[in-house]
Every structure is written in C-alpha cells, then in structure tokens.
Amino acid sequence: MIHVAVQTQDFSVAEAYTQLCEGKPDVGAAVFFVGLVRDRNLGDDVSQLELEHYPGMTEKSIEAFAHKAHERWPLIDIHIIHRVGKLAVQDQIVFVGVTSEHREAAFAACDFLMDYLKSQAPFWKKERHRLENGKWQERWIDQAEKDTRALQRWHNPVDESGV
C-alpha cells in the first residue's frame, strides 16, 4: 500500500512506524529516513526554510514514483510524509518509510525515493539567512547537481523507463 501526505503540520515518526508495521506479520524489514532542517547551507547560517509545492501535482507525482518503486522492488508498504510551509532549524521535513520481507529491497527503495524527492518532486525551497552585515536575506535555492546525479544512478540498461 502507498500512503502519501503533503502537509504543513509536523509528524510523529513513532506513529508512522506503527502504521507501517502493526498488524503486518509479513513485514521482516522496515527502513525509514527522516530529513531535518539543518543550520548551515553553502556556508551560510540558515534560520528558516520555506517549502512550496504545487497542490495536486506534487501528491500525484510522489504517488507515481512510489508506484515505480513498488514495481521495481518486492515491497509491502510505502509511507511518505512531506512538510511544506515555514520550517525552522531542527524541524522534520520529510519521512520516507518502506517495508518489505527482506532488508535489501527496503533499503534500496528508501534510498531511491529520497533521491527522487530531492531532485524531481515538485517542491521549491526558499531559505532565510544572515548576511555578514547582520541583515537577513531570502533566497530561492538552486537545484543541486549532486541531487540530480544521485537520481541518475538508478537508471540501468535493462530498464529504459527511467527507474
């Protein structure tokens, strides 16, 4: 089963983990990743992030990629929560949880889904940071080449679909 939520409110990792595992006797492996707002980016202090999405398109796009992960690996459930709006340092941004019978599939699918979320999902990140003169400035973050490259490693010659 695929569960996708894009929301402003915080989430409970414990609750998401329970939803993934409770009453599912076939689950032998649960892998999850939590992304947090860190206090530095590109050498600047960051005090606040703002994440924007395209309501409707963002959810559909994440679901489509979750389906690709389901087709590629023998998974049981995928649970993705992505926050939008204003976030402060240390806030949770994203939860990706994957369950399977054996750990290899869950590890790989979780890694793949994060690479996708970082580079292809319709989210835009704006940062507030402090300049050397003490003033605050807002800036939209540019696409990181590292994130685009990370997704490319999931391409392989036997699968031309891009996954």
Partner: peptide, 10 residues
Amino acid sequence: VAFLPPMTGG
C-alpha cells in the same frame, strides 16, 4: 498550465 522552476525540495 503552469510554469515551474527546477525542483529543489526534499
């Protein structure tokens, strides 16, 4: 129809 900048989320 929408114009979107390159995605930078996650």
